[in-house]
Design a protein around this nucleic acid. Structure first.
Lengths: 328, 328
DNA sequence: CTGAAAGCGCTTACAG
DNA sequence: CTGAAAGCGCTTACAG
């Protein structure tokens, strides 16, 4: 790769002149300009942005890193979409990173070298050590979708969401209730289930709660998981006469809807997340205010970016989910 | 923001020593190390990555920009996902950019300053001028989802896809056929419709083709568009006895499926794109090989990145869509 | 174990 | 209109 000296030499001018040409050619004689331009084209020269920024004293990248566990997950995509819309409005960019099975600390070390303006971790448990790593670098960051005592975080109360689901099923008069979740028992799921059970037991101590778990393989087609959810729904309904179903997430609930279409009796189905397609399915579900979450995250980071104060008290914002009643 | 000189001065050492401490502290006396570290913490110092990279002579960003028209579009999200999976395997990162209504040339100018390793444009028409802008900067790039004579491109043949849809509907014996598209008549849609009509006319000259167009507002819930598609399907079926429907994309076809559920007679429904949910819906559709497209795009750019040769002949790769027969 | 100096590739007063 | 020089913030031989 040629640099500005190569161009200057070949064009028989100083690097200052090359720089001027690069800037558009103000205060450069036409002939000189043309000559330099010609050499630039010949050598396929493109100025080095790193050096340029350094000289400009413009160190900002204007891009935020958004780190998600899994890039294929629809709900994460929805959150990212919300964040992106806000970032763009403020003229910031998006660097998207999916962690998968990589070690969080390694990823952080890696991201720290990417010269990003800030980091938004979605549903990623950051240890105190990892947070300190970030605090030390003085980079604005926050965690979404789960509370974290060692940094700013914004999350939607899963316990409350579970309770909301229970309340709905009870209000509709369903007697035999099931929870259908995933075998990888995430923190979110535990919270939702706990809120669900607590509410049920409190308001109807005699209620029986069935639990079933589906093994989710992210590399596999949705259809398969939904098919499994459908079968489990049918089985539970036929074997135990269960009529109220709370699904850990909307994708699974779609399976419930399919089961319903095969049944004569109306069963209660409630999902979680309110995915874009759920309104089309007329699925009753728990909505997470991800627009608010995205907006608040962006607002926080932008604020931190401009104040650059290292604070030792962190804000944990708890948001409330809402019940969206539709046709199930 | 303090720099390395501030630290050196306050710690009473040279910047070389500070640099060594930053690197981990090899060949530094323990006391010196501790002293420097203390100052670093006190001043919340974080080294400047731009300068560091410059000094390292490490100019690569290892991140590719992926530019899409609209970040909310599910099909684009699917393509991005495929590209991402490949990039990560090769240890490259993703910078995601949604153009929306901004001017392409402006965006290119802007992206050029972001020090990216390469650019992948998805379904974005790049003028010769825009391509030259990129070629001049010697940055590897390609266009996906539409052919482009001025740069490398990879696309799936929409004309062929339309023909495939026609063939399917005809093979199933449907007589009265409709195409349901979007009012913004994109290049893709024109191609699909043309392939569709040409095949129909050729193989069954007497066939009548109805066309209906739905006004899509991207800021609005899917459900609304699907609802509209449902109503149109019902209307066409009832008024004109239409029994074979080709939808411009799967989202619209979902509306057709809903219509089917209200009808006694079986109608033919075929979509386009094979979205993740389509297998769950049992939707017959046209699949675009986006895995291949993503892989090929990544392969091309990585190759260009390593050879860095300015070539003047470009490759346009045409991929074939495939018919996925399910239950509609 | 430590520091002075050169260098990474660029920009921008300053002087002419 | 043009060039020599200083500077952006860092790293790394080199010498001691």
């Amino acid at each position: 790769m040629p640099n500005i000296y190569d161009i200057a030499k070949k064009a028989g001018v100083s690097i200052a002149t090359v720089s001027r040409v690069l800037k558009g050619g103000a205060n450069v004689k036409k002939e000189t300009y043309d000559k330099v331009m010609q050499v630039i084209e010949e050598l396929h020269y493109a100025p080095n942005n790193l050096a340029r920024k350094l000289a400009f004293k413009d160190f900002s990248s204007s891009t935020f890193g958004v780190i998600i566990p899994d890039i294929a997950h629809i709900f994460y995509q929805e959150i990212v979409r919300n964040i992106y819309n806000i970032l763009r409005k403020k003229n910031y960019n998006l660097f998207l990173f999916g962690i998968y099975f990589e070690e969080t600390e390694k990823i952080i070390q890696y991201l720290l070298k990417e010269n990003l303006s800030g980091l938004i971790f979605i549903n990623i448990p950051l240890s105190e050590m990892n947070c300190n790593l970030l605090h030390k670098q003085n980079i604005p960051f926050c965690v979404l979708e789960r509370p974290n005592p060692f940094c700013n975080s914004i999350y939607v109360d899963n316990y409350q969401g579970g309770a909301l689901a229970a309340q709905y099923l009870l209000s509709k008069g369903y007697k035999k209730i099931a929870f259908i979740g995933e075998t990888q028992n995430t923190w979110q799921q535990q919270q939702r289930l706990k809120g669900f059970k607590d509410f049920l037991c409190q308001h109807n101590p005699s209620v029986q709660i069935y639990e079933e778990y589906i093994d989710i393989n992210p590399s596999i087609d949705y259809a398969l998981h939904e098919e499994t959810a459908k079968k489990i729904t049918l089985k539970l309904h036929e074997q135990y006469n269960i009529d109220g179903f709370f699904f850990y997430c909307d994708e699974l609930a779609y399976g419930g809807i399919k089961a319903q279409s095969l049944l004569k009796k109306k069963i209660g189905i409630i999902g979680y997340d309110d995915l874009p397609f759920s309104s089309f399915f007329n699925l009753t579900t728990i909505h997470q205010p991800i627009e608010t979450m995205g907006a608040e995250a962006a607002r926080q980071l932008l604020h931190l970016l401009h104040t650059k104060k290292g604070s030792h008290s962190y804000i944990n914002i708890r948001l409330s989910p809402t019940l969206i009643i539709r046709n199930t």
